[in-house]
């Protein structure tokens, strides 16, 4: 077993008075791809929100230990600066905030946190343009308002662009495949696969196995009723496809 980079222990969390996560345990290993699968309402997105410090979430009990520290009370920006990245299921539109300006501010905040010099506009744009091309995005996306008027596929590509620019350590992909056509799915998957370096960990949250044909998982975790009820290797995907979530019982 590789080194554990994130250890979620007995996590209880609620949204608006309703307890969603009910004692969830999960360990993310360094350099591995973990896929979380589960039926609607199981708590998959709530888990991603709890890890990133979303304002909707109230953690009632348990710990999220990341790089040796319990981050449950950390601000969202502190979690991000320490290397946690969430690719949102529905990225919010921010009219008036230029995409390039937003991303440069984020990249430079991280560089400052790491004690590195900030990138100037030209250095940043050169890097951003290269990745925009790799991801098959339209060049004008750089200067448009953040996610405003983007199609579903464009929004997801923009999430991957941010991920590639920010070089995080733990990447949570919340239904990254939803709303993507085959070409977009392939471009997004290639971007994700390029980020695999044996150190970086991935948490892929999905309903369907389609994305897992492109991003090969090391572990499959089944999340049901706020708990991980089964963890196994990639072979579990075929079983889930065949029998559905209903047939999986708590181990």
């Amino acid at each position: 077993m590789s080194r554990v980079v994130m250890d979620i222990d007995n996590l209880h969390a609620r949204i608006g008075g309703k307890e969603i996560l009910k004692g969830l345990n999960l360990q993310l290993e360094e350099g591995k791809v973990h896929a979380i699968m589960g039926p609607n309402g199981a708590g998959k997105s709530t888990l991603s929100k709890a890890i990133t410090g979303h304002y909707d979430i109230e953690v009632l009990d348990g710990e999220i230990r990341y790089k040796g520290q319990n981050i449950v009370d950390w601000e969202p920006e502190d979690r991000a600066l320490e290397g946690i990245f969430l690719s949102f299921q529905n990225p919010v539109e921010v009219p008036g905030v230029n995409n390039a300006y937003f991303l440069r501010t984020a990249v430079n905040a991280k560089r400052k946190h790491q004690g590195l010099p900030e990138l100037n506009a030209a250095e940043f744009l050169r890097e951003m343009k290269k990745l925009v091309q790799e991801l098959g995005m339209k060049p004008e996306m750089i200067s448009r308002s953040l996610n405003e008027g983007f199609s579903g596929g464009e929004k997801k590509r923009n999430e991957i662009l941010q991920m590639m620019m920010l070089q995080p350590d733990v990447i949570i992909l919340d239904e990254i495949d939803s709303g993507l056509d085959i070409d977009a799915l392939r471009a997004v998957s290639e971007g994700i696969n390029k980020m695999k370096d044996g150190k970086r960990s991935f948490l892929v949250i999905t309903h369907y196995s389609r994305i897992l044909d492109y991003i090969e998982p090391d572990y499959i975790h089944v999340l049901k009723d706020g708990k991980i009820i089964k963890t196994a290797g990639p072979e579990l995907v075929a079983e889930l496809e065949e029998k559905g979530y209903g047939a999986i019982e708590e181990a």
Binding site: E77, V92, G96, F102, T105, A106
Partner: peptide, 27 residues
Amino acid sequence: AQLFYLRSRGIAKDEARKMLILAFANE
């Protein structure tokens, strides 16, 4: 939601607020 999105990318709360206010006025 917008504020959280910016903060989730490592942008400090005050800076994120500033960006959103500027964006509001920018239009």
